[in-house]
């Protein structure tokens, strides 16, 4: 595992190096796209785009977790169980609506820029958290819960000491899914004016500049893969049965 972590760190460094090198690699872009007049993307600093992409996606994930996790916990409490059908219904509806549509619908309400993308992001990213919380908490062995209550744990203690630790692997996979969804949807948000690594793609498509498109797509895809593997590494050693 340590080896994988080191490799991942090296890859992240390579990513950052590539971001630094991209605006300086004019020769490369000219060679790849000889017919394009201005193949080097210089409109925004790549690091600024990376920064706003991460801020938007990860910020949304944090907000989504703050909404989705408590909602999931509530839905598994005796009182909240009646909400389950409505939550399942919400999942169903959300799955039929692509994220770009959600961003588009939020646009008239919130105008261009980061806001509509943020709204769509929070709503979409909350769903994996909700689902993970519900399925993770429901999978806790009832015998363990009975014993916990019988030994004298209060409902809060039971949640904190028994239920959440046992649900942790599922919760972490929900986090991974939420981050993947978020990074991808943020990239799409470029069409609504959100500054991110998707912006060069959209600009390139609008101006028939395949070089911009390639660079934007390359870095967007690479970022998504890096984050996914980083989270997989985080989740891996914390499976139940191993020392915490």
């Amino acid at each position: 595992m340590r080896r994988r972590a080191t490799l991942l760190a090296l890859e992240a460094l390579a990513f950052l190096a590539a971001l630094w090198a991209a605006p300086r690699a004019g020769a490369l872009w000219h060679a790849l796209f000889p017919e394009v007049a201005r193949p080097t993307y210089l409109q925004d600093p790549w690091f600024a785009l990376l920064g706003s992409h991460l801020a938007l996606s990860l910020g949304a994930v944090a907000i989504a977790a703050a909404i989705g996790l408590p909602a999931g916990i509530l839905a598994t409490r005796p009182g909240g169980r009646r909400l389950r059908p409505v939550l399942d219904a919400a999942f169903s509806l959300a799955q039929g609506l692509p994220p770009v549509a959600a961003i588009a619908l939020a646009l008239p309400l919130l105008g261009f820029g980061t806001a509509p993308t943020l709204l769509a992001l929070v709503l979409y990213a909350a769903l994996p958290f909700l689902r993970a919380a519900v399925s993770g908490l429901e999978a806790v062995p009832p015998a363990a819960l009975d014993a916990a209550t019988g030994l004298g744990m209060s409902p809060w203690q039971r949640l904190w000491e028994v239920e959440l630790p046992l649900a942790r692997p599922v919760l972490l996979s929900g986090l991974r899914l939420a981050v993947t969804l978020s990074v991808a949807t943020t990239a799409v948000g470029a069409v609504a004016g959100a500054p991110c690594l998707g912006t060069p793609i959209v600009t390139g498509l609008a101006n028939a500049n395949p070089s911009y498109v390639l660079q934007g797509a390359l870095f967007t895809a690479w970022l998504a893969l890096l984050l996914d593997r980083a989270l997989a590494l985080l989740a891996a050693p914390l499976a139940p049965g191993e020392a915490p």
Binding site: V183, A184, T185, V188, G198, P210, T220, A224
Partner: peptide, 12 residues
């Protein structure tokens, strides 16, 4: 991989 990125990568 974000779909917008995949589509973009396939263009070239």
């Amino acid at each position: 991989i974000p779909s917008i990125a995949l589509f973009g990568l396939l263009i070239a």
